[in-house]
Amino acid sequence: MTRSSASPQTTNPTPAIEVCNLTKSFGNFVAVDNISFSIARGEIFGLLGPNGAGKTTTISMLSTIQKPTSGTAMINGHDVVAEEDAVRKSIGIVFQDQSLDEELTAYENMDFHGRLYRIPGEVRRKRIGELLALVGLEDRKDDFVKTYSGGMRRRLEIARGLLHEPKVLFLDEPTLGLDPQTRNHLWEYIARLNEEKGITIILTTHYMEEADRLCDRIAIIDHGAIVVLDTAENLKNSIGGDVVTITSPDPDAIAGLLTAPWVSSIEQHDGLVTIHLQEADRHIPGIVTAIHQNGIGITSLSVRKPTLEDVFLHYTGRTIREGGATGKEAMRMIYRARGG
């Protein structure tokens, strides 16, 4: 407990988070499969993956909510199993599912939290005021949370997660269900927090744009395993220079057709063919000619730089939204607590 607080952050080489062969099984099902990574102090680290990838389970283990089946994890030099309390003191967490008391006001929710973390009264009141102002809720601070919109609740939860000034902040899908404007606002805020207070942030998301904009490094996680881990830039570069997307009535044929060595990879999905290649502008005429010569139609064709979406597709063979993500997401927003 004293180890990390005794030495200033800049001279402390201990990583904020050190995960080693972490595994979580539920019965025979392996939800998190032997993952290892290390997060530096002051980093914003993203866990990007589809529904059920194991993001929340990973966060739960790192935040002492669930015990790992095997492997170890250290937060600020403290073991999540052996030094639960020290870990709890140094982390803040915004859960994926709502975790506010709706029968209390926003201020009371904050105050309850501040007292749990034993923040002295004076400091507590001051910080609550500041944080509520920061998330734009100071006008509504004495309203019951049950009268809040989803976005307001989310902002309140984020403010609450920061109240005790954690060294490491976990954000589990922080912008899920928020409108684009609020989402943007929160992104800016998260980035600022990280910059000004040096808080290490680990966030999970299945929004590519969120991961791309915020995270210093991104781990793509699928079926409980880390598929690839790097900066967004490197991830995009790793899959080849350009992306050509072709819509066609017969995508199978196209996929079988393009076997030239300059095609780094080719995936097809939902009637779309996605081709990764270097110097697309030089090869497009060849592609189009080849397709036409084989009597296949092209509905549309576009060329662009790769996005994280392409990276994801490349490494997992699926788009992140496959498998009814949107439906589940909508369900989740109807807070699971409602009506039990």
Binding site: S63, T64, I65, D85, R88, K89, I91, I93, F95, D97, Q98, S99, L100, D101, E102, H113, L116, Y117, R160, Y335, R336, A337, G340
Partner: peptide, 17 residues
């Protein structure tokens, strides 16, 4: 049980108390 279902219990249990 309601605290559990509304997620509030989780936020309490993750505090260093």
């Amino acid at each position: 049980i309601w605290d559990k279902q509304f997620g509030f219990l989780k936020a309490t249990l993750v505090a260093p108390v």
